[in-house]
Amino acid sequence: MTETSVPERPLLRVNNIEVIYDHVILVLKGVSLEVPEGGVITLLGANGAGKTTTLKAISNLLQSERGEITKGSIEYQGQPIGKWSAPDLVKRGICQVMEGRHCFGHLTVEENLLTGAYTRRDGRAEIQRDLDMVYSYFPRILERRRASAGYVSGGEQQMTVIGRALMARPKLILLDEPSMGLAPQLVEEIFEIVRRLNAQEGVSFLIAEQNATIALRYGSHGYVLENGRVVMDGEASVLSQNEDVKEFYLGLGASGRKSYRDVKFYRRRKRWLT
């Protein structure tokens, strides 16, 4: 899976999509990316770069925010997904975990997990088996399963929503900022579980993250979004060595270039951070 450039059919291919909100706000200006079967791909970018929009375009959740894809196409397993509704996509294996831990607050943790199995028709026993599987990956939420999801801790909520997505037996999980508002240790724990899910359950991931340090450590390939465009992409190990990425995402300033009089640098910095 390290060779993403082989002309093998990727699990997901996003071709040059353009997204407009409210008929006038152009947010994505041609985004292309690929997720290979079994890959962990990361989507980096500052606030407002368009990461969430990209994920929602894939999972067809833009409509409810009055956004629409006006150009380009998205293919999943070689088929265009244009006409599929969000529930259709879930049935076919694409599940989004939204940013900001959207638990169903008045449902218990376990009920939250069970809603993830809504589209499945393979019977109680299978669902129970997957419930046990989720608990084996997230033992913390097993203890809290009877608690209202609205009142469990942020980390437990994040685990609940990832577990909920797993209950749909997805092939691809679109994970939006799993690190948001969580302590570094917990973030590490969650990414570790993502890695295990990828290796053991064969789930592919497309992860939008601002925390590039950790995202590049766990992902195999990364895309850098800026202002609705992909400005750079490559192997995670290569990206994390890139000077710009280091400077603006990893917080490791390249030595000896701290002068703001360096116009070229300053302009570049502006470009990165708008």
Partner: peptide, 13 residues
């Protein structure tokens, strides 16, 4: 009732 968008995201029509 709790969250329309999250409900759609888990595949509830």
């Amino acid at each position: 009732a709790d969250d329309h968008q999250a409900a759609m995201a888990v595949g509830i029509p």
